[in-house]
C-alpha cells in the first residue's frame, strides 16, 4: 500500500507476471518525485530504469508464468529514490552479460536493459542468485 509521511513516500505491491500491470506501478513513484521537486531528467531516468527492470523480472525472470509473482518496493524522499524488484526466477549473473555497446554487438537487438539501468541509476545491486535488484537514485547536487 502507498504511504506518505515525514519519512517519505513508499509503496509495496505483489503483482502478477504482466508487464502492463508492472509498468503502471511507476506512476505513483513519479508523482512522489514531482512532489519532492526532483528534476525532470531524473524522473525520466528512474522511469526508464524501472521499466527495464520490471520487464526483465516478468519476461526473463518469471517467463510470464501465471503462477509466479513479482514483488515491488518503491520509496521516495527529497534526496533518494529506491526501487526493489524481486521475481521468482532462478536469477542471473549480470556480469556475464556481453556489452551491447561493443562494436560487434551494436547491431544485435536486445541486451541493453541491464546496461541502461546501471548507466541511469546511482547504485545498482543484484542480490544472489540474481532474481532481486535494488536500484538507488540520489538527487544530484543543485547547480
Amino acid at each position: 500500500m502507498a504511504e506518505h509521511d515525514s519519512g517519505g513516500w513508499t509503496l509495496e505491491r505483489t503483482i502478477p507476471s504482466e508487464t502492463a500491470i508492472g509498468s503502471e506501478l511507476v506512476s505513483g513513484l513519479l508523482a512522489a518525485m514531482q512532489e519532492y521537486a526532483w528534476p525532470a531528467a531524473e524522473l525520466f531516468h528512474v522511469q526508464l530504469a524501472y521499466e527495464e527492470a520490471i520487464v526483465n523480472a516478468i519476461r526473463h525472470g518469471n517467463e510470464f508464468a501465471a503462477d509466479k509473482t513479482v514483488q515491488v518496493r518503491l520509496s521516495c524522499t527529497a534526496d533518494e529514490v529506491r526501487i526493489e524488484i524481486a521475481d521468482m526466477g532462478p536469477g542471473f549473473d549480470p556480469d556475464s552479460l556481453p556489452d551491447p555497446r561493443a562494436e560487434d554487438r551494436l547491431e544485435v537487438p536486445g541486451g541493453r536493459g541491464v546496461m541502461l539501468i546501471h548507466e541511469l541509476m546511482s547504485e545498482v545491486t543484484y542480490h544472489p542468485p540474481g532474481n532481486r535488484v535494488t536500484m538507488i537514485k540520489r538527487r544530484p547536487p543543485s547547480p
Binding site: 526508464l48 521499466e51 527495464e52 520487464v55 544485435v108 537487438p109 536486445g110 541493453r112
Partner: peptide, 13 residues
C-alpha cells in the same frame, strides 16, 4: 517523450 529498450530493439531491426 519516452521509449524503452524494447522499442530500441525494433529500430535496430
Amino acid at each position: 517523450e519516452f521509449l524503452s529498450s524494447a522499442a530500441l530493439n525494433k529500430l535496430i531491426t
